[in-house]
Nucleic acid binder design. Structure first.
Lengths: 209, 209
DNA sequence: GTCTATACATCGATAGAC
DNA sequence: GTCTATCGATGTATAGAC
């Protein structure tokens, strides 16, 4: 992933290293800006100013504004993927659902702009590149497999689950940004969902379907 | 509301009528454009072209682009309010919840741009005027009173309800625009919610709390 | 009141010099 | 790789004809 040129393998390409570092610096600045002013308020000129560059020089690193968005999109999904890998999923289905719901809603509530970019279609004409979209797909299948392991095989049940979690996240961001009004409801929501799909027995839900 | 000048009350103000009609025409064109190209892609110049006007003439009708958004915001909320008034709410709590959930999710799924404008904060620096926001508040309290009548007094339960319904709507728009993948789940979602708040008895839920 | 004309600052993007 | 110069389009705003 770091070297695509056959010659001089293993040798560090200082030029490329520097290029990648600058790219990273630009993306970090972009995150700061969209967090502060909103996803759609991102301006390449302002971004260039933030990293002490002439606006036109940005095109050395990103082919277009959408390319910047695309990298942010991949960034956000990578971050979510990392969190998936860091948590431990309990064998208890109810516990597993709680953990994953908390993970997702917390992640969403942290950053309105990131949520908009990753899970909503709010930027005109923007579509993630295949590479970036692959990361999103990986995140999705991770989530799905956790649910499957918890005994949730039905597609409709899974859709209901994502709707419930997405609803908590979007309401938290829209109606109480920075607060915890809907985050507080996660456990109740999961309990409601578990009752529905696993049956009435809540404390020890070994009966699947 | 139609005449603020003391003299000649009851006499039609043709000039104002014409002005209002043009304003309406502009707003209708604006709806078409945001539906086609996305809420954030609205351009005043393109809007002017759509109604055969010079871009600058729009300022006779709207003080700014945000003012256009503001009127669209009020428009959408008025439409939702109208639908609230047109439906009949059953005495059966479960039925009442189904009706209102269907109303909202259907309304949301019809128009991505409208949903974005009414329920999400996606336009940089846009905030509805007090007059427009009052309509939104009216819509909200209508919904809330229906839920209260259905026996839902608890604030946390109401928040869980709005999260559930908003989740279905936003997932429908994000993952299956124009389809019915999540709309199909409304009844199941309401059943799940009703079980949770009304108790296990589903068919005849007379037992409140 | 509504139009035309014109101005200004900003935006994303490209070409070419060094 | 970074710069200057430039393009077309945008949102905003003012002046003046009718």
């Amino acid at each position: 992933m770091t070297s695509t040129i056959p010659a001089d393998t293993g040798r560090r390409d200082r030029r490329r290293d520097r290029h990648d570092a600058t790219k990273r610096e630009i993306l970090d600045a972009a995150w700061q800006m969209v967090r502060a002013d909103g996803l759609n308020a991102l301006s390449l000129r302002a971004l260039a100013r933030a990293v002490d560059m002439e606006p036109q020089s940005l095109y050395t690193y990103f082919a277009s504004k959408h390319a910047v968005y695309d990298h942010l999109f991949a960034d956000g999904n990578h971050e979510l993927l990392t969190r998936f890998e860091q948590i431990e999923i309990s064998d208890d289905p109810h516990q597993a659902l709680c953990t994953i719901a908390r993970l997702f809603v917390t992640f969403a509530a942290e950053d309105q702009a990131r949520y908009e970019l990753l899970f909503q279609r709010t930027i005109p004409d923007f579509e993630p590149s295949p590479e970036s979209y692959a990361v999103a797909t990986e995140v999705f299948s991770r989530g799905r497999s956790v649910l499957t392991a918890a005994g949730l095989g039905d597609d409709a049940d899974f859709d209901l689950w994502t709707a419930l979690v997405a609803g908590l996240a979007s309401q938290q961001l829209a109606n109480d940004p920075g607060g915890d009004r809907y985050i507080r409801l996660i456990d109740a929501a999961v309990a409601m969902f578990a009752e529905h799909v696993f049956g009435k027995v809540v404390p020890n839900p070994d009966t699947k379907a």
